[in-house]
Design a binder for these strands. Structure first.
Lengths: 125, 125
DNA sequence: GTATCAGTTTGAGTTAACTCCAAGTCAAGC
DNA sequence: GCTTGACTTGGAGTTAACTCAAACTGATAC
């Protein structure tokens, strides 16, 4: 698969794909004789993983560490498991915070609905 | 309240408080005769609101717009309500995405646990 | 009455994560 | 054999949201 095919499929710009590779989120992408990247299904799956984790707020630095551990082989299985567990915990924390904020927004919107219904009474902020 | 008191109470640096004020997330903070900021409880509540919304991913720009509408008075009640509703929707979307990612992380961690238990079999990434 | 300290302003610097650009290469079509 | 178009690289530029620095001021402690 060429970079533009992967770009379309994963909805990530070619520049970002090259950037991810450069910073170590995608190692040893195959090249054609002419030096052009030739992504495998495996690569795509990994890119999807990165995309998913990035959108959940995991930093490039953390993902870089994860794949660096990966390259060191089986003996880092536990370390990788712990890294993921740590990030999972943080994610759960963010999730709970967001849930609270969602409730707060719902409440605020309901206050607005009341103010609008009752002849435009103003609120504090 | 001085800036350092608010800073401690809200756990936001004085620099950030001044920055928020400068970009319009906090208008007309009182000053002492000597020109020093003197925050009210109201100001604090607003700062907490900003902090909460920021941590939920609302941009400074969106919050700036919200408070700008606020300054224009009662006739912007509906517009503010709509702005909040839009952000609420986006937040809910992010929340759902994060929930999926949490599940994915849980699954991946369980795969690691299996690999670690079964004599260190390696995974794909 | 001067040293200290918490505040002030303006403007520059930082960080993460891209995103863009220029100059070059290679394979395919005509 | 030349043009075209998709790719390559290295490095510079961008954006959001702070964060820091320098020079200054006003009130309190001694």
């Amino acid at each position: 698969m060429t970079i533009s095919e992967v770009s379309k499929r994963c909805n990530i710009s070619p520049d970002t794909l090259r950037y991810y590779e450069k910073v170590g989120l995608l190692s040893d992408v195959n090249r054609t004789a002419g030096g052009i990247r030739d992504y495998t299904e495996q690569d795509c799956a990994q890119i999807e993983f990165v995309k998913c984790m990035r959108s959940a707020g995991l930093s490039i630095e953390i993902l870089r560490k994860y794949f660096e551990l990966f390259k060191r082989g089986k003996r880092t299985l536990k370390a990788r498991r712990e890294l993921l567990a740590t990030e999972r915990k943080a994610l759960q924390g963010r999730l709970e915070e967001l849930q609270d904020t969602l409730k707060r927004l719902d409440y605020k919107i309901s206050v607005y609905d009341k103010a609008i219904a009752s002849k435009d009474k103003e609120l504090k902020f």
